[in-house]
Design a protein around this nucleic acid. Structure first.
Length: 201
DNA sequence: CGTCTTTGACCAGCGC
DNA sequence: GCGCTGGTCAAAGACG
């Protein structure tokens, strides 16, 4: 807000672009997304992805067909608010072995914002906070679907400010709100909205 | 008019 | 027991 005010604004806007219709495109190019994160993905999380089915975009991250994910999802629903994860540091390691099974957490690192914003679902930003160890603020998003408690955190990579790290928590128990089967005809509403916002400071 | 973003403050868990 | 940090909520404003 201070040191990164301008940059933050831009970055925030980029993510505020919610998910225009490009999602389909991404889903279509699941390999691309995969490669992006196959190359830049965080090592410890690689196991998480495997545990979840390989690619968050194609497996449980979006489709919500991951049984394990559903399990963890239900458990999350029962959690009261503001319950900090235990052993957050360990989670990185634990996630690679056990947590990934009980708590579906998908960490995706992408070098382009479009990879993050266009996941096919509508997200509502409910918070932003600067976390220790990272000069860039972390944005908190929640799925706008009332019956969907999926959340995601988006933050910049420390190493590469141009890279964004998106952490998905939970599984979508609904279908994609954006149904643009035709990649050439993305959701006009969302598309325009995001474009306009992205264009605006 | 409806929806979403932004910002500040509060709460709870964890570490020392 | 205290302090710190992270995560979430709520209100107001802005935009399409």
């Amino acid at each position: 807000m201070v040191a990164d005010g301008g940059a933050q604004d831009v970055w925030s806007n980029n993510h505020s672009d919610r998910n225009d219709g490009r999602t389909e495109n991404q889903s279509d190019t699941g390999l691309a997304a995969n490669s992006v994160y196959g190359v830049k993905a965080l090592q410890p999380n690689d196991s998480i992805l495997n545990a979840c089915g390989g690619s968050p975009e194609n497996s449980c991250g979006l489709s919500g067909e991951c049984e394990q994910g559903s399990k963890g999802f239900e458990a999350e629903e029962d959690e009261p608010r503001s319950k900090r994860r235990r052993n957050e540091n360990q989670s990185n390691e634990a996630a690679a072995s056990e947590e990934a099974v009980t708590e579906p957490r998908i960490v995706l690192q992408s070098s382009t914002d479009s990879e993050i914003i266009g996941d096919g679902f509508r997200w509502r930003k409910y918070g932003q906070k600067v976390v220790k160890g990272n000069p860039y603020p972390r944005s908190y998003y929640r799925c706008t679907n009332v019956k969907c408690n999926v959340r995601k955190h988006v933050e910049r990579a420390i190493d590469d400010p141009r890279a964004f790290v998106t952490t998905y928590e939970g599984k979508h128990n609904h279908e994609m709100p954006i149904k643009n089967t035709n990649p050439n005809v993305p959701s006009e509403k969302d598309s325009q909205a995001s474009l306009s916002k992205a264009d605006k400071p």
